[in-house]
Amino acid sequence: MSTVKLTVNGKAVSADVEDRTLLVHLLRENLNLTGTHIGCDTSQCGACTVHIDGRAVKSCTVLAAQAAGSNVTTIEGIARGDELHPMQAAFRDNHGLQCGFCTPGMIMASIDIVHRYGGKLDEATVRHELEGNICRCTGYHNIVKSVLDAAGRMKVAQAAE
């Protein structure tokens, strides 16, 4: 057992976990942040995507101890109070989800994509960049539309700040 200290969604947290604990289990079971999903558990599906120090990673393939000292952001940490993050709002407006299981990972991966590309995103790039996130409902079409819509909204939001 080790005590793992990290920052999750802006709050300093500490958890006593076995060294073999995965980050996704620490988030879900110790912190009750169950928005981060476990889909495949084999690093393929991306449902468990969170940000560690600003970069999208698959939290099922990171030991909790590896994240000690890091800043972790989950799907629960992106809205501002009642105001959805522009990516969440775009998914809602564009019907970018059906069952919703992959959505937290899709949104975290997509925010990272927009951060890396800025406003220079096109459909082909979004499809390519979403290779690590699997959706079995939508056929991806509306997810891609959502990301492109959100890229515009995030640019506007940034410009306003």
Partner: peptide, 9 residues
């Protein structure tokens, strides 16, 4: 290599 999340690690 892999996908973006894999390349980050």
């Amino acid at each position: 290599i892999g996908d973006p999340a894999v390349r980050h690690r």
